[in-house]
Design a protein around this nucleic acid. Structure first.
Length: 492
RNA sequence: GGGCCCGUAGCUUAGCCCGGUAGAGCAGGCGGCUCUUAACCGCAAGAUCAGGGGUUCGAAUCCCCUCGGGCCCGCCA
């Protein structure tokens, strides 16, 4: 690996330390507290005052060093935030102080021991009585003020993005907390978290293109799952009643601002309940997540906006009513497929002429309605032609019991009262198999067999976790909520 | 699949239209400075201008190709 002159300079410092029998990469730094603790203790102090009592130990990455002759101000970052260390020649000793000024570089991981103090200018600080190098940084960090601007570098080398951006750290921390809250919420609601296979002989539950690989043991091709649905419904047949899985699914499709080939899906299935029960569950889940994000990201306006929006509840619209209202097209349900096709063409869609009529309705909805679904909104009761796998509506002929929900024009999830009639399921699989446009549909014969044993009436939902995090953290690209998004390998 | 845009020092960038030996800030080196916080002041150093080819006396700049990336549209879901 090529070294820059800067890196050679830093490596020389490591060599010098070693020659002096000092360790540039020590083993631990016991007794350290988060810098947050120091900031908290500083609240009780007045400017220029130093706290009494035992010294405390903090550790973090050095990101700025301002040297004023015999006093230096060193800013360190840890996960809890940033803290200024005050290093003084008269406290550390002239010799050690000047040695540290020569040895320290931004990016180094250091530890310090000392007393909390407010600087004369009122900055929460730690007056260091002792400094330790915990790991020498050979490569310099990104520029301190602008940070890492290159989008490609941010994605390919996320560690640089994280170490130079407190905002990025806060966003991914928020993601972890939101996922944990989601799990707690479902656990408390009596759902059982399960793990089903990622490697499957047949990638069912949708018509996305799967990734393929090969099992040496089986001597067969296997695929990566595209959805969790069919495995989880089998568990309902098996009597697990309330189950969910939160895990990776894979679709061999394009990556754009709302799609990633590898993404995190939550699916939950709830026996003896229907889609309106699920609607209530979603609303409660999002209210809880909103209250968490409000305190997690106090400095992110879009996150605060999302927190408020979800806290005040969802708005509900009817699929057909809303589409007729927005498009100005009346009596949509009575229209012939050819008419729907013409309307879809007029809206700019280029889907094939022989697509099922539901496809045209979907295109019209995408074009006329989705951009307007800015507030958290449930879209309720879809025409049956748009949705092959939901149960028919109990009181509205030609419709199914289904809702999707949206925020800022982005689809966040999709729920049904699930189809559990095995013969009906078989017919719909057959239809999909015979449809020219869905030639990559995988027929899972054993799933129909499972339904023959009886699946309880149930509701189910799929929620894209990446999009959920985007919505709640006010992020506009899915790549900004995935730590290591898929990128092309760099040729040597 | 179609269109638009970007790639200059470790990082952030100016220069590109209108061709004439690449200019700065941060970081790093040396010197100064005991309350700064994008610290400051002085000195010196650092660049196959993404890669390849072409036009030209001369290319970071104009043209073509390749690589990597971003955005929009379409498709997919």
């Amino acid at each position: 690996m090529d070294e820059t002159p800067l890196e050679r300079e830093r490596r020389a410092k490591v060599a010098r330390w070693r020659s002096e029998r000092r360790e540039p990469y020590p083993w631990s730094f016991p007794g350290r507290v988060p810098t947050e603790d120091v900031r908290t203790r500083c609240l009780a102090l007045s400017a220029g005052q130093e706290a009494e009592g035992d010294p405390v130990r903090v550790a973090g990455r050095l990101h700025a060093l301002r040297v004023h002759g015999g006093t230096a101000f060193a800013d360190i970052d840890d996960l809890s935030g940033s803290l200024q260390l005050i290093l003084r020649a008269d406290v550390l000793g002239e010799g050690p102080y000047h040695a540290w000024m020569g040895d320290l570089d931004s990016g180094d991981l250091i530890g310090a021991e000392g007393r909390p103090a407010l600087s004369r200018r009122g900055e929460p600080s730690l007056v260091a009585t002792r400094v330790e190098l915990l790991a020498k940084a050979i490569s310099p960090p990104p520029e301190k003020f602008h940070g890492l601007q290159d989008v490609e570098e941010r994605l390919r080398r996320r560690y640089l993005d994280l170490l130079s951006s407190a905002e990025t750290r806060a966003r991914f921390r928020a993601r972890s907390v939101l996922v944990r809250e989601t799990r707690s919420f479902l656990d408390e609601a009596g759902f059982l978290e399960v793990e089903t296979p990622v490697l499957v002989p047949l990638a069912g539950g949708g018509t996305a293109q799967p990734f393929s690989t090969y099992s040496n043991y089986l001597g067969e091709e296997v695929r990566l799952r595209i959805a969790l649905e069919l495995a989880l419904k089998r568990l309902l047949v098996g009597g697990l009643e309330r189950v969910y899985e939160l895990g990776k699914c894979f679709r061999n499709e394009d990556l754009d601002v709302t799609h990633s080939p590898e993404f995190t899906m939550l699916e939950a299935y709830w026996a003896y309940a229907d889609y309106l029960d699920m609607k209530g569950l979603v609303e409660r889940l999002y209210a809880r997540l909103a209250s968490r994000v409000g305190t997690l990201l106090p400095d992110v306006p879009a996150a605060q906006e999302a927190a408020q929006a979800f806290a005040s509840g969802f708005h509900t619209v009817d699929f057909v009513e809303e589409l007729e209202h927005r498009s100005g097209i009346s009596r949509l349900i009575e229209r012939k497929p050819s008419e729907l096709r013409e309307y879809a063409r007029a809206a700019g869609s280029t889907v094939p002429d022989d697509s099922p009529p539901g496809v045209f309705l979907d295109k019209l909805f995408e074009h006329y309605v989705e951009p307007h679904l800015l507030r958290p909104t449930f879209v309720l009761d879809y025409p049956a032609v748009t949705t092959p796998l939901a149960k028919r509506h109990r009181s509205r002929p030609g419709f199914v019991e289904r809702f999707e929900f949206y925020y800022r024009g982005m689809e966040l999830g999709n729920a049904y009262t699930e189809l559990n009639d095995p013969d009906e399921q078989f017919r719909r699989f057959e239809e999909q198999l015979s449809s020219r446009v869905e030639d990559r549909f995988a027929y899972d014969e054993d799933f129909v067999q499972a339904l023959r044993y009886g699946m309880p009436p149930a509701t189910g939902i799929g929620i894209g976790i990446d999009r959920m995090v985007m919505a709640l953290t006010g992020t506009f690209s899915i790549k900004d909520v995935i730590l290591f998004p898929l990128v092309r390998a760099r040729l040597p």
